[in-house]
Amino acid sequence: MASIKMIEHDGTEHEVAIEDGKSLMELATDNAVPGIDADCGGDCACGTCHVIVGDKWFPNTGVANNDEQQMLDMTPERASTSRLACQIKITEAMDGMVVRLPEFQM
């Protein structure tokens, strides 16, 4: 089974099965992964689905556009591989990808 691993800030791991075409945010909320609020429903307008992508997987997630950069800029936990999960389209090629969740969503 192709899957993605999401690790909460306290270390709790969640392995979720890949569903092609969904966003990472949808994958997380559909699988009840805690710590992804997604207040705006996936419109890149609230910043509450912040994730930190594993270094080697970061290039596979695409490029954050201007809107996303601005929302990420508002979180103090921003890291160099931060993304908004609603802006990452899932593909089969992401099998094995690891992402970490911040301590807080803003």
Binding site: G47, M71, F104
Partner: peptide
């Protein structure tokens, strides 16, 4: 949680939490 009271975008309520 999908309500508008905090606004969306760059001016989203800073004190929401």
């Amino acid at each position: 949680r999908n309500h508008l009271s905090f606004g969306f975008g760059i001016h989203r309520c800073m004190g929401n939490r």
